[in-house]
Measured scan of single mutants.
Amino acid sequence: KFNKELSVAGREIVTLPNLNDPQKKAFIFSLWDDPSQSANLLAEAKKLNDAQAPK
């Protein structure tokens, strides 16, 4: 279960257009550290992506 959630969340995070590479890497490392938090980490990444969207 975690492997699928981890890969789905990881793929989504790397495609978020408004995150820079260090931010993406930080989220990916957090996913590896605790795969059970993949849904929460993906939600946080999406929030940050939205907040950094060009206005």
Rank of each mutant, 00 (worst) to 15 (best):
A26Y: 14
L41M: 05
L6S: 05
N18A: 05
L42V: 12
K4L: 09
N49I: 01
L19V: 01
L48C: 06
I13K: 00
P54N: 09
L42S: 01
P22D: 15
L42A: 03
K1V: 13
A26K: 11
D34W: 02
S30I: 08
L41I: 14
K55V: 13
L48T: 04
V8W: 14
K47W: 08
P54H: 09
F2W: 14
Q37W: 04
A53D: 08
K24I: 08
E5Q: 10
A26I: 08
P17Y: 03
Q37F: 04
N18V: 01
E12S: 05
P54I: 09
P17H: 05
S36N: 06
K46M: 08
P35C: 04
L16F: 05
L31M: 09
F29G: 04
V8E: 13
L41K: 03
A9S: 06
Q37D: 06
E12Q: 11
K47S: 10
A39L: 11
N20G: 05
A53F: 05
A45H: 01
S38C: 14
L19I: 03
K47C: 11
A45C: 04
K1A: 13
A45W: 02
Q23D: 03
S38N: 05
A39C: 10
P22H: 15
G10Y: 15
A51W: 06
S30N: 08
L48A: 03
S7C: 15
I13W: 00
R11N: 07
K4P: 12
A39W: 08
L6H: 05
K55W: 06
W32T: 06
L48N: 02
P22Y: 15
N3W: 15
A26R: 11
I13Q: 00
S7F: 15
K1W: 15
E5C: 14
A9G: 03
Q52M: 07
S30L: 14
E12G: 04
I13G: 00
K55N: 11
N3C: 15
A43T: 08
L19R: 00
P17C: 12
S36H: 06
L42R: 03
G10Q: 14
A43R: 10
D33G: 09
A53V: 06
Q52C: 08
A26T: 06
W32G: 04
A26S: 08
K46D: 01
P54L: 10
N20W: 06
P17T: 08
N40D: 09
E12T: 09
R11A: 10
L16K: 01
L41Y: 04
Q37C: 08
A9M: 11
K25Y: 14
L6N: 04
A43I: 10
D21Y: 13
L48E: 02
P54W: 06
S30H: 11
N18L: 01
E12N: 05
T15H: 11
A45Q: 00
Q37K: 09
K25T: 10
Q37G: 05
F2C: 15
A43Y: 10
Q37N: 12
Q23L: 03
D34L: 02
K1E: 13
F2A: 06
K55D: 10
E12C: 12
S7I: 14
N49A: 02
S30W: 14
N3S: 12
K47P: 00
W32N: 05
E12K: 09
A53K: 09
E12P: 01
S36D: 07
E12D: 06
E44T: 07
K47L: 09
E12I: 14
L19E: 00
L16S: 02
F27C: 04
K1N: 12
K25N: 10
E44V: 08
S30E: 06
P17Q: 07
K25E: 12
A39M: 11
A26E: 07
K1M: 14
P17E: 06
D50T: 07
S7R: 10
D50M: 10
N40V: 13
T15R: 14
N3M: 12
L31K: 00
N20E: 05
P35N: 03
L16I: 02
K24H: 01
T15A: 14
F2S: 09
V14A: 11
L41E: 00
P22V: 14
S38G: 12
Q23K: 02
V14Y: 13
E44M: 12
I13P: 01
Q23W: 03
K25H: 09
Q52I: 04
P54A: 07
F2T: 09
T15C: 15
N18K: 02
E5M: 12
R11S: 07
D50Q: 10
A53Q: 08
L16N: 01
K25V: 11
N3T: 12
F27Y: 07
L31R: 00
S30T: 07
I13N: 00
D33H: 10
N40K: 13
P54S: 08
F27T: 00
L31P: 00
S7K: 07
N18H: 14
L31H: 00
W32R: 01
K55M: 12
D34E: 06
I28F: 03
D21A: 10
L42N: 02
V8L: 13
I13T: 01
T15K: 14
P35D: 04
A9H: 07
E5N: 10
S38E: 13
E5D: 10
V8S: 13
V8M: 12
A43W: 08
K46R: 13
K4E: 13
K47G: 04
R11D: 06
R11H: 10
D34I: 03
D50I: 09
A43M: 11
P22I: 15
P54T: 08
F27V: 00
D50E: 13
R11E: 07
K55S: 11
L48K: 04
K46L: 08
W32Q: 07
Q23M: 04
Q37R: 07
N40R: 14
L6K: 03
A39I: 08
F2M: 11
N18G: 00
F2E: 10
A51C: 12
D33R: 12
W32A: 06
F29N: 06
A51E: 10
N3I: 13
I28M: 07
N49M: 02
P35G: 03
L6C: 15
I28G: 01
Q52W: 02
K4A: 13
A39V: 08
K46F: 05
L19C: 03
P35T: 03
G10P: 02
N20M: 06
N18P: 00
I28R: 00
D21L: 11
D33S: 14
P35F: 04
E12W: 13
A9T: 11
L19G: 00
P54R: 07
L31I: 08
F2H: 09
L16E: 01
F27R: 00
K4R: 11
K25D: 09
L48Q: 04
K25R: 12
N20V: 04
S38P: 02
A51R: 10
P17M: 07
A26F: 14
L19P: 00
L31E: 02
A9E: 08
N18R: 01
A26L: 09
F2L: 11
A53P: 04
P22T: 15
N20F: 07
N40L: 14
A45N: 01
L41Q: 02
A9Q: 05
Q37M: 07
P22E: 15
L41A: 03
L6Q: 06
P54M: 09
K46I: 10
N20Y: 08
N40E: 11
D34H: 06
N3R: 09
P35R: 00
D34M: 06
A9R: 05
K47A: 13
S38M: 15
Q52E: 04
V14W: 15
A39E: 12
E12R: 06
A51T: 06
K55F: 10
K46Y: 09
L19Y: 00
R11Q: 10
L19S: 03
G10E: 15
P17A: 09
N3H: 12
A26W: 15
S7W: 15
W32P: 02
P35H: 02
N49S: 06
S36W: 04
Q23G: 02
D50C: 09
N49F: 02
G10K: 10
N3V: 12
L31D: 00
N20S: 15
V14Q: 12
L42I: 09
